[in-house]
Design a protein around this nucleic acid. Structure first.
Lengths: 388, 388
DNA sequence: TTAATTTGTCAATCAATTTAACAAATGAGT
DNA sequence: ACTCATTTGTTAAATTGATTGACAAATTAA
């Protein structure tokens, strides 16, 4: 059952949010907004005036069309707000500040000393953050987004029990930073947040829905469904790394058999590759060799592509997405593995009509982890009307 | 990007739809509606008056609470509308009429002669239908819902290329009946429509989201997400039968390797069962034997449960649903296989916190296929405000 | 019988969009 | 240079639907 009913105020919030969303995907004029949203020019004018008044939008240059008065383009004011983004991984943390347009203004990435406690790491992050905020950028602090490996308790703002991450179990991440900053703080799975950032700033822009597949030490997923991050009933959705590619396969720590993570995560595929050729201890080496014509290396790439095509097929059959975007080490000289995966996937979904599935590499370059975490807050702001 | 913006008319449509939805899930009074929806009593009164005026609602008996004026319960008027439902399977068709509350008023189920053309079958169905409609029930004909095995082109209202269904390929089902009835006609995958009916009338009522798993000659799926049927980008979603339980397994007609349908569909598991004991040619026999202590039969049930638990785990990891509802032959004396599946699934998702997954049997008894197809139209009507 | 309580209705008000007229800006044709 | 059609944007009045707050109706308890 839908949560919220509608009244005039909700209606306004919703339409305002719609306007912001359209402008975020690209400068556009009032008239274009009216056409895209279906609102009248008058209504658009009222909403835009309000947003200009609040300093959230800027008027850009006049766009000349054929004849008639020139349309005035509207764009987000990057200095309207700023956000803090923090990504915590097993080995590092990345901390930074984004402006309202997602531009990274400041950033640090530091190794996490494996011997110190989570509390000490948090205190270190806190100090870094306070230094950054001594000379804050223009605008108001909108909030802080935190990303970490799943599974995590999004509502409580804590990590649950990700493997090899024991020291963080149960640490109240969100509360810790809420107490310091006194602003909204949200926690999200890193792979989900990455996919959402890709939707706004990267290769996902052209798709309404797509699946983001993060392949590195583990295999994670993020499902963008109709422009929004799919979270599932308990915030555990898109956990593709622990789906099986072999019903009776090896036992995984997670309880399942034959998890794809056991075969296709970077460490696991390298483990197998090294057994073929001891120089294959880096994915880049394998790709470079394969491109140079080394058949053994190509063999490794094919095997990796086979596993990934298997789960991508599952994703496509269940979610029916038009595209999958791949993140992580595999995007190195992507064409080779891309073609292998695309061929295998499209062969596996042969009987599905209406064309194949696009396989793309992430196009987030500048500090993707910080962008992904900070963007969570920008997203929440822009979609404030999005409670339906 | 969301399609529709909001104005006063949309707002009303939406709130009206919300009211209908609440009443459909159970009689309730104006005051309860106000509490549940968040609208004011005044707004509820206006909407309810309109619905009473249109004959869509009925006033029921007064509900006595402790003190004060008694609340008047409101319920859907079953005679406000009726719908036609048609399900086409490989061997049979089922045709019927439902009232607005989903009660089946008339029904026929007939074998499809494998030697006649699709056009002839349609003409036969048409004649059956016209006979039924000679003495139509009270109310207005709201539309016709058709269900068939996927994949199908929902927009064009045609079947695409389901295996063993060649004579139906490309037949313009929806247009055929639209021309006869002059009312809305929709086409949907049978497994999806079943899941949606289960949400409204069956075991899915208590869940906001769940997955329906149809196990018979094939394996189909339907994903109810936040009360709505998930369709995916091209209407192919929830196609769980052609996801792999073995990345390098047997080749399936669909193009994939190791599809679960190759191992766990009823014919396939029986094929294997018969090789163990020639009397195991019926799932009921296997279950009866297993319950009587036959270890070989239990072995068969365990193997079936193993395959299903593997794909249910995939479903849970990707979609994060709290429950899976199973349809089809497997629901015979369900407790045995239910317990096996539940144990195996919950063992496979061990590391996921926040409790296990419910495994339920469908509770649709009276003409589920007709209910599922006809309900599509009722659903569309009730959710008419649901364009957001 | 009265008071308290709950449910439901009504009229006035409010908030947001639409409608429709108008103003501003611009290029094309004369 | 001037006019005119065209496009973009603004404004005031009208419209629609929800809210507010008072009131009426119905019921139980005292």
């Amino acid at each position: 059952m839908r949560k919220s009913t509608l009244n005039a105020a909700e209606m306004r919030r919703f339409n305002r949010s719609l306007v912001l969303e359209h402008i975020r995907t690209g400068e556009c004029s009032r008239i274009e907004l009216a056409k895209k949203t279906g609102l009248t020019r008058a209504a658009i004018s009222l909403i835009v005036d309000e947003l200009l008044e609040e300093g959230i939008l800027l008027q850009g240059s006049a766009i000349s069309s054929s004849v008639g008065r020139r349309a005035v383009s509207l764009l987000l004011n990057p200095n309207a707000f700023y956000v803090v983004g923090l990504d915590i991984s097993r080995t590092h943390y990345a901390l930074g500040i984004l402006d309202f347009c997602g531009k990274c203004l400041k950033q640090v990435k530091k190794r996490i000393d494996s011997r110190i406690t989570a509390k000490d790491v948090l205190d270190e992050i806190k100090n870094e953050m306070l230094v950054m905020l001594e000379n804050p950028p223009q605008g108001k602090l909108l909030g802080m987004g935190i990303t970490a490996p799943g599974p995590l308790d999004v509502n409580e703002g804590k990590l649950l029990n990700p493997p090899n991450f024991e020291k963080w179990h149960g640490i109240p991440l969100v509360d810790y930073f809420k107490n310091i900053l006194d602003c909204p703080v949200v926690l999200e799975k890193n792979s989900g947040a990455l996919a959402l950032a890709e939707k706004v700033y990267g290769a996902g822009r052209q798709y309404d829905s797509f699946f983001g597949l993060v392949v590195d030490t583990g295999i994670g997923g993020g499902f963008v469904n109709q422009g929004r991050l799919y979270r599932g009933s308990f915030g555990f959705g898109a956990e593709i790394g622990h789906t099986s590619v072999d019903c009776f396969g090896d036992m995984c720590d997670c309880g399942n058999n034959g998890c794809v993570e056991l075969y296709a995560s970077v460490p696991r595929i390298l483990e197998w590759a090294v057994s073929l050729d001891s120089s294959f201890n880096d994915w880049k080496v394998i790709i470079d060799e394969a491109m140079a014509g080394n058949l053994l290396a190509l063999n490794v790439a094919e095997r990796e592509a086979e596993y990934l095509s298997c789960i991508i097929t599952t994703i496509v059959q269940v979610l029916d997405v038009p595209a999958v975007v791949i993140f992580g080490d595999l995007t190195y000289k992507f064409e080779l593995i891309q073609n292998l995966i695309r061929e295998k996937v499209n062969s596996r979904i042969l009987s599905r009509s209406l064309g194949g599935v696009e396989i793309k590499a992430s196009r987030l370059t500048d500090a993707p982890a910080i962008l992904a975490s900070g963007n969570l807050i920008i997203e929440n702001y822009i979609r404030a009307g999005d409670t339906i």
